[in-house]
Amino acid sequence: MPDVPVEVVRRLYATPPERFVAARDAAVAQAREAGDPRTAREIGRLRRPTVAAWLVNLLAIRRPELVADLTRLAESLRAAQRDLRGGELRELSAQRRAVVGALVAEVRRLAAAEPAAPPAGKLPLGEVEATLNAALSDTEVAEQVRTGRLLRSSHYAGFGEVPRPQLRLVTGGEETYRVGRPGAPGGAGRSGGPTEPVGSGGPDGVAAERAEARRARDARAARAERAKRRRAATREMARARADLDRAERELAGADTAERDGAATLDRIETELAELERRRAVAEQELSRARLARRGAERAVTAARRRAGEVEAVLEALDAEEGDAEIGDERAD
């Protein structure tokens, strides 16, 4: 995409997938308004990435130095595989797990800062991890990851680069290296000269026969060594595939458990929100009841006081009437 400005590509591929199409259409319209229809067409050809690919692109765009570390580690791994440096390869493999784990954690942190990102429990981090591991073994995936233009997640099912074996042919007192089938046309002979004919008679013929016999023995030894290495590689491949299958099953189980846990957490949070709402309503009703009780208590107190006052008046009236009757009786 040479006609699309780099900043436009970076902005679009850092945009969450659900907003990608709208952002791309806006960029197309802006290019057309600027009188650049060719750039507008190229922008319109950009495709929306998956969520996992977007997360990897976000890592490459926001933290390019971390992706550069991944690229350097990939080069070291390939060199160790080509040279069959077992100890270094094991050390680099352990470093690979640590680096990929740190990158996945950084992806989770970057996604948390994006308002339109999916919830943490729904991030496809397993696909992100698989893509980063693929970038360590596949140069094409590594380039897409480095440029931040990944469209979909990747998964690498191979086992790295396999170096082409170099066969050693011993002829006489010298060693000559040859690639391919010993004795084939164009192959190296003894001391760089042409191979002598077999059975030519005389000392030279005997020497040629012996040399041919040595070459045949060396060829058989080379074939046996290749067969041995192939059997060892086959066993290693079987173990690696078994480990891969087990890891993929564990990953699938972990993804399922993570999704179930996220669903349970969402359900509990919903229930908690409902309980909080009901608690607020109950607290309001309790407050109103308390206010009503206090009002009723005040009313009861006032009524009692009023009743006491009326009762006192009645008693006073009764006393006055009693005194009046006594006075009347005395007057009679």
Rank of each mutant, 00 (worst) to 15 (best):
G160T: 07
R85V: 03
W54I: 09
L123S: 02
L59V: 09
L66F: 02
L46K: 10
G295E: 12
Y13R: 09
V313Q: 06
E321G: 04
A29H: 06
G192V: 04
T39G: 05
L103D: 05
L89G: 08
A273R: 11
T234K: 08
E106H: 06
L66P: 00
R85I: 04
A68E: 15
A120K: 05
L272S: 08
V162P: 00
R277N: 03
R246I: 06
G295L: 12
P119C: 02
D204A: 13
A247N: 07
A233Y: 03
A262H: 09
A60K: 13
E321I: 10
A240Y: 01
E315G: 08
R10G: 01
L12V: 13
G199R: 10
E321S: 15
A111I: 10
A263P: 01
A102T: 11
E65W: 14
A207H: 03
A262K: 06
V281R: 12
R215W: 06
A331F: 11
E33Q: 14
G253I: 02
A216D: 06
K228Y: 14
G295Q: 12
A222D: 15
R97L: 11
T39D: 00
R96Q: 12
G308Y: 00
Y177G: 03
Q144L: 13
D255F: 01
G327T: 15
A289G: 03
R164T: 11
A207E: 09
L251V: 08
R215N: 03
L251P: 04
R85G: 00
L58T: 10
P163R: 09
R293M: 12
W54R: 05
R41I: 11
L73V: 08
A316G: 13
L169W: 04
A280D: 08
E271P: 00
A213T: 11
L110M: 02
R97G: 05
L66E: 12
A307K: 05
E274N: 05
R330L: 15
A23P: 07
A113K: 04
T256Y: 01
S137W: 06
A299G: 12
G180P: 03
A34Y: 01
N57G: 02
A216M: 13
V170P: 00
A224K: 13
A34Q: 12
H155N: 09
R85F: 02
A60V: 14
G295P: 01
T301S: 04
V179G: 09
T131V: 07
R181L: 14
R235F: 04
A142W: 07
A282I: 15
E271R: 14
A242C: 02
R72N: 02
G189P: 05
P182N: 02
R146L: 13
T256L: 15
V206A: 11
P124N: 03
R226M: 15
V51C: 06
